[in-house]
Design a protein around this nucleic acid. Structure first.
Length: 332
DNA sequence: ACGTTTGTTTCGACAATACT
DNA sequence: AGTATTGTCGAAACAAACGT
């Protein structure tokens, strides 16, 4: 966990807000840590999940029983005590920062999942401060930087198999990795996958088979006897270690979800491959035929798709003369 | 024995994308 | 451009376990 990130988050949330919390510094740190860990869940409108160990590590506290007790007490503190904040319409809001929380039973190793519901105004403030103003570099370079420091690592093994992966499965893998990062959960039932990807259930079944075939996703079979549904898990222990390529969360969100800049499955496949080739910046001079071979497309398809990516602002495509040969280069 | 429930797969029509 | 291939979705089919 990047500690600078957390410090920036803390500063941003409390310095620039009009939220007044009358808590001692330790308790406030715990609350902030919870908000920080759950920042993506807050954005998704979900409850925050975490375990005590994660909080301890984030704050760099020593692993004693005493520490865990203090963390737990801090959670109780914000459930029981009020905080005040000034609203725009000249009103004051008095509420509990933590509306409710669910505590796991027998959490003897402090690694079981806690679940916290925070005050709706507090939630709104976090989203405003942390997310909404943040995607425009000029408005707020500080936050822009903060968001960009959130990266997701993709195994190069994934890209090396692009020629045999269907467009749909490439997209699905990106969606799963993103979801895992945002919610810190990397195993799902098929219905959940279908829900967060927006792909139909039957299609999800078919596509995910391709990922299982390449061991990118593992399937734990369900059982009708015990009513356990099949679970699909992102495989983190690949047999082949060919390194990783970091993708910015923002980039993936743009490819998958951005209303105006969204890419089709085929475009995602090509763009992410170009991104992989350059580590997200710089230029590529490979021929269209070679790129086509690598991702399993025809040469002229690459030509067309790169035109679209250029139009959508994902890459810059330039034709230039190399000796007497016309060539293209692509800049991410 | 037969129907019901549940989770998954296949089918068929159509749409989207790729190829020639 | 026209044609071929691939992707998508809901419906229907299927398989396993359960219930009666």
């Amino acid at each position: 966990m990047n500690n600078t990130n957390f410090k920036n988050f803390f500063k941003k949330v409390w310095d620039n807000s009009n939220i007044l919390i009358d808590a001692d510094n330790f308790n406030l740190k715990i609350l902030t840590a919870i908000l920080f860990l759950g920042r993506h869940q807050i954005e998704l409108g979900e409850e925050i999940t975490f375990n005590l160990n994660q909080i301890r590590k984030l704050l760099g506290l020593e692993g004693s029983i005493y520490t865990y007790c203090r963390i737990e007490n801090a959670i109780f503190y914000f459930k029981i005590n009020f905080y005040k904040c000034k609203l725009k319409n000249n009103r004051e809001r008095i509420a509990h920062a933590i509306k409710a929380f669910e505590k796991p039973m027998n959490d003897i190793y402090f690694n079981k999942e806690w679940r916290v519901e925070i005050d709706s105004v507090l939630r709104e403030q976090i989203i405003q401060l942390y997310f909404h103003d943040s995607f425009n570099e000029n408005d707020n370079p500080f936050i822009y930087e903060l968001i960009n420091s959130d990266k997701i690592l993709f195994p190069n093994y994934f890209f090396l198999n692009y020629h045999s992966l269907s467009d749909g499965s490439v997209k699905l893998y990106f969606a799963m990795k993103l979801q895992a990062k945002l919610t810190r959960k990397d195993e799902w039932e098929i219905d959940e996958i279908s829900e967060f990807t927006g792909i139909g259930k039957s299609t999800s079944y078919r596509i995910i088979k391709n990922l299982i075939q390449f061991d990118l996703v593992r399937k734990h079979a369900g059982s009708r006897r015990t009513q356990k549904k099949a679970i699909y898990i992102i495989n983190k222990n690949l047999k082949f270690n060919n390194g990783y390529t970091p993708f910015e969360i923002k980039t993936i969100k743009n490819m998958l979800n951005n209303a105006e800049k969204k890419l089709t499955d085929g475009e995602i496949k090509l763009y992410s491959y170009l991104y992989y080739l350059t580590d997200g910046k710089g230029e590529i001079k490979k021929s269209q035929a070679e790129i086509g071979r690598l991702i399993g497309r025809e040469r002229n398809t690459i030509s067309e798709l790169t035109d679209i990516l250029h139009e959508k602002g994902y890459i810059i495509k330039e034709t230039y003369i190399d000796g007497n040969q016309t060539r293209c280069r692509y800049i991410i």
